[in-house]
Write a protein that binds this DNA or RNA. Structure first.
Lengths: 119, 119
DNA sequence: TTGTTTGTTCGATAAAAATGGAACTAATCC
DNA sequence: GGATTAGTTCCATTTTTATCGAACAAACAA
């Protein structure tokens, strides 16, 4: 978990908790942050992800997402750059982020989802 | 959303909220309920899923899961039988439940998860 | 060094969730 | 009818989260 060079602490892959991740994703602003980051090819700073809310409020949301292991923050000059920890999440919970972001890759709606009882 | 024959109200597929689902899954007892139901071939009653906690507390957790659309409850005699709404969830958020339950079906840990930046 | 920008931390308040006892309801049995 | 079982609802309490202004810190520029 150790604080990294930038002074932020990020959980190790081994200590990720699905519960904490779900809690992190159960807020609409945090979900918007995750979706924006997923759609971006490059890391984004906090200001670009503040959706017009006060800095202190958003700082709180970033902290929750960071502590859950959903995103990674690093300092670049005065800015704090954020990116999804997609590789780690995909290793630890394959399919989770894809499902959240709607990148199906799985049978789409209308197709034959796996079902216990035949249709 | 209408209350069904059994007197319980369950959300329609169209009104599912990812946020509400995440909130429902952000509690450890609720996650245990979901996992137990996923592992069971048949619906389970509330008593079998109470993990030794008071009835009123668990009733609360069942209500949250039901309202989020995660499970379906129906009366059978004095008992309330619960089952995962797996088909609906799979249609609406393909891969989500599989990811939660650890049924990968996706590249497993150590394999080549889709990555934006080549390894 | 003073000022600016970007974001964190602090602290107080408000809102939301969780907990569990007690009373209650519905189905079932005797 | 009375007793039992299974779970819900009500209510009060506690715990956890969210919100946001204000003070603060770090990096940088003039």
């Amino acid at each position: 978990m150790a604080r990294d060079e930038s002074g932020f602490s990020h959980p190790d892959e081994g200590t990720l908790s699905l519960e904490a991740i779900f809690h992190a994703l159960s807020d609409s602003y945090r979900l918007r942050i995750v979706r924006a980051l997923a759609a971006s090819a490059v890391p984004m700073n906090c200001g670009d992800l503040s959706f017009g809310r006060p800095k202190s409020s958003m700082s709180h949301h970033f902290r929750i997402l960071r502590a859950a292991g959903v995103l990674h923050t690093t300092s670049q000059g005065v800015e704090h750059m954020n990116s999804l920890r997609r590789d780690m999440l995909d290793r630890r919970f394959p399919g989770l982020m894809a499902a959240i972001l709607g990148e199906t890759g799985q049978p789409a709606a209308g197709d034959h989802p796996r079902r216990l009882t035949p249709a």
